[in-house]
Nucleic acid binder design. Structure first.
Lengths: 326, 326
DNA sequence: TTGTAGGCGTTATCAC
DNA sequence: GTGATAACGCCTACAA
């Protein structure tokens, strides 16, 4: 494989002339340029980024760390990241933590070993011990970090997440607008602080004399008649479901119970992926702007790398996508 | 950041002792080991893979090149790749070609620049001009390559795909077993060679006096009543749909037309993602083993890297997953 | 068992 | 405008 040296020799100039020409650091004589270009073409020269990275002590690789890729949420966010990074000629490493068999320390060492230019954590590591590790990386080793989609208080490194309080609020308001005033919340097991945010938005929207009904779906189950029974008992006519898959299974179960969606009970889900779109009936939902989330995450990483300013906390505004289920 | 040199100095040994100790090339005196370990811990040493890669002229980064990540098919295959590669401590680069704004030459140069250890192409580049480029990379520059999920004749580089003829055959057979003998094929626009494979499997399964009905769905449309009308005209009672999303929209449209699935018309889709699972009714489908496809793709790359033997062509066997739509 | 030194392909600091 | 030379951090012959 041809190297810079080979090009230099072939073009009768020094390596540094070639290097500077390629990086547009200097203007070279037209004649020199021609000879260099010719040599590059003839020898099929391609620069070696590894050598460059070693010399410059920085790579153009950004790591994305997430639980799993084969999920519409994560792949959408990641695709957004990938899009923005590609525009700036950065490469993207994917790490699925479940596959890594590494503890937090191991993951961080992996990042350092590979000299990644930045790290995007997506919705991960609820425990605070890891936050300390991330802070260490961010503050100590000065690796740009973004924490995407964990709604935690600001703690020294940039955060980026959707406004969950508002998501919950506009979702609830939408149901109320559809004359569904007895509204239940359905959700898979969830950290308490998250749940509190949803509760807050819900409270802001709801009539104060309406007793909220929170229904937690076991992690090992889908929504079934048992859950629908609860809805009936409480004379619920609107349900806000915190994940799309559960929302789908809810509508399925309602249909089997001869309960009409949205006439008897309206269903609104959080998250607007293909799932909501293809469900029967198609689900009205709160769009959390997943792709934008990814794009902005990448932007914040890039701004850090390029020493530009960036927001400590970026909050995305959710919006309603109306379909058939409300 | 501490380097090997620092460790060596701190432990009062030479860099090469440390290096060889770390790479388990030699056994060192217990005492030396202790001193080295102590230095590593004290200085927080992490090896620099970039420098290592430069020296060894090889990286442990494998590139996955695909059209888009935010799709259940691609993300599932990629997750499989990621899983197997992670087990062998390889990193994975993701390149979404739509975002790259690079022609084939540009993509290949990117691979060389980054000195990737291998490349997995997933379902891409139907035109043969690019096949030539890939062959050049594979044979000329000796970068391990796998071509995943393009059912083309063997042409010098390893191929890996599901048995589409069989997929089509067992799908058709399943419909026949359910007493649905007037079977239509529905599909989005498709390269002719692919279509021929499906046709072949179909022919092997079907009664010879049954005239096949192929329905192509416009790229800009979902299945609608117009298509259902065709089914009725031809007295179809079973449909084999070549993509899950279309299958879902077909069942939706059938429901709206008061046609019962599976009683009046059975529907069977190709591909077993979450989409088939959550559709109403849940779709019987042909599982193409997407995750396994990814895993095996990674294995073939690894075998090439490690100079082990590997199959030129690997064909995966599809199987039926029975749900409610047949 | 351990040390010395050269080089992987680049860029950067000088000097000319 | 251009060139020589020294790094970047690691591995590895070869030497001791």
């Amino acid at each position: 494989m041809a190297t810079l040296k080979d090009i230099a020799k072939h073009a009768n100039v020094s390596t540094c002339t070639v290097s500077r020409y390629l990086n547009s650091n200097i203007v070279v004589k037209k004649e020199t340029e021609v000879r260099i270009e010719e040599a590059i073409k003839k020898l099929g020269y391609v620069p070696n980024i590894i050598a460059k990275s070693l010399k410059q002590q920085e790579t153009s690789n950004v790591a994305v760390i997430l639980p799993k890729l084969n999920h519409l949420y994560y792949s959408e966010v990641t695709s957004g990241i990938s899009q923005t990074l590609a525009e700036h000629h950065y490469n993207i490493f994917i790490y699925e933590v479940d596959n890594l068999h590494l503890d937090e320390e191991g993951i961080m060492n992996l990042m350092r070993e590979n000299m990644v230019a930045g790290i995007v954590f997506i919705g991960l590591f609820p425990d605070t011990s890891f936050q300390e590790k991330i802070k260490e990386v961010f503050l100590g080793w000065k690796i740009p970090v973004v924490y995407t989609n964990r709604c935690i208080p600001y703690d020294g490194f940039p955060l980026l997440y959707p406004n969950l309080v508002k998501a919950s609020k506009i979702g609830t308001e939408h149901l109320i607008k559809r004359k569904k005033e007895k509204i239940a919340f359905m959700h898979k097991p969830l950290p308490k602080d998250l749940l509190n945010q949803f509760l807050k938005g819900y409270r802001e929207a709801i009539n104060r004399d309406h007793e909220p009904l929170f229904i937690e779906i076991s992690d090992d189950k889908n929504v079934n008649k048992e859950y629908v029974q609860k809805l009936i008992e409480h004379q619920i006519n609107g349900v806000f479901v915190l994940d799309e898959k559960s929302a789908v299974y809810l509508t399925k179960t309602l249909a089997k119970s001869n309960i009409q969606v949205p006439y008897d009970i309206a269903v609104l889900s959080l998250g607007n992926s293909l799932i909501s779109e293809i469900s029967t009936p198609e689900l009205t939902c709160v769009d959390l702007q997943n792709r934008v989330l990814g794009q902005k995450s990448a932007e914040i990483i890039l701004n850090q790398i390029l020493n530009k300013t960036f927001e400590d906390v970026t909050v995305l505004e959710p919006f309603i996508v109306e379909r058939e289920s409300t």
